[in-house]
């Protein structure tokens, strides 16, 4: 009699009914579609507008697709400000800055996990607390220092103050802690020093974590604004976000929207492409703290 107690389906099991279908759509698909559209449409609008002719922008009607898509706005932007130069500067600053930051993070995390040295806890705390110090507060003292060193309008002046990396160090340290000590022991028997152990063993098995740090660093270097804005005033040294500022008509009344959308595409598209291809690494890197506590 009581042999099959699970015969009756419990009420929680959803049967396929119109009511459940309706709830899934109302509570799931509609909010998701709405959220996706709210993000997607402004970006699509930007892309399309950047390809429109001036007459299609300066109109009170609304049409998403350009009638005769053309690069005119991009050419206008380039003839108004040195856009190729901004792009080159952004690429240089992002590439050099991110590469150096990654190397520094790898070294520091390795030392914190695998090397014994005095004051290790203090140094770790110093790095951890630095995560909470807002970089925006430091711009004036850093400006005074970099200016006194002759670093205004130079690549090294843009890159140097941001090089110290607490985020990358912390993330890689968390990963190195999960590596089994055994993988280093055989190398120790062979008499390998730290340098060899780092490059031959630790780095090769940590490629996904290093890629995560690298990608997050590339994104933040590319988007960096307040520091390059302050430290450069010569167009030849400006990065893209700073250069874009030059395109905006400061009185705010009559903007050349087609040209501005072309500029926005140039600064947003590279990151969108990288994100589309590698979003798993970037999302996990940027939300890491929530999981590690």
């Amino acid at each position: 009699m009581r042999t099959k107690p699970a015969q009756d389906p419990p009420p929680r099991v959803r049967s396929l009914s119109w009511r459940n279908l309706g709830m899934t759509i109302a509570g799931g698909y509609i909010p998701l579609a709405l959220a996706t559209l709210v993000v997607f449409v402004p970006l699509l609008w930007m892309m399309m507008s950047s390809l429109k002719a001036p007459g299609e922008i300066v109109t009170t009607g609304l049409a998403l697709l350009p009638k005769n898509p053309g690069p005119q706005n991009y050419l206008d932007a380039t003839s108004t400000v040195p856009f190729p130069r901004f792009f080159l500067n952004s690429v240089i600053v992002t590439a050099v800055g991110s590469a150096l930051k990654c190397v520094l993070a790898i070294f520091t995390a390795y030392a914190l996990v695998f090397v014994r040295f005095p004051f290790k806890r203090v140094i770790f705390l110093l790095i951890l607390v630095a995560l909470m110090v807002p970089p925006q507060v430091s711009v004036l003292p850093n400006y005074v220092l970099i200016a006194s060193m002759g670093g205004l309008n130079t690549y090294w002046g843009i890159i140097l103050p941001g090089l110290g990396t607490a985020f990358g160090t912390f993330l890689l340290r968390q990963h190195f802690l999960t590596l089994p000590p055994a993988i280093l022991e055989s190398a120790e028997i062979d008499g390998a020093g730290h340098w060899r152990k780092l490059w031959k063993i630790v780095v090769p098995v940590s490629v996904p974590s290093i890629a995560t740090v690298g990608l997050v660093t590339i994104v933040s270097e590319w988007n960096e604004y307040i520091w390059p804005l302050i430290v450069t005033d010569h167009p030849d040294m400006m990065t893209l976000p700073v250069g874009l500022t030059q395109l905006v008509n400061s009185d705010g009344s009559t903007q050349n929207w087609g040209m501005l959308m072309a500029g926005a595409v140039i600064v947003l598209l590279p990151i969108l492409v990288i994100f589309a291809a590698l979003q798993r690494y970037i999302v996990s890197g940027l939300t890491q703290g929530s999981v590690t506590g």
Binding site: P241, V248, M261, A264, V267
Partner: peptide
């Protein structure tokens, strides 16, 4: 980039 997003 907040600058790009701001312009859009």
């Amino acid at each position: 980039s907040g600058v790009g997003v701001g312009l859009v």
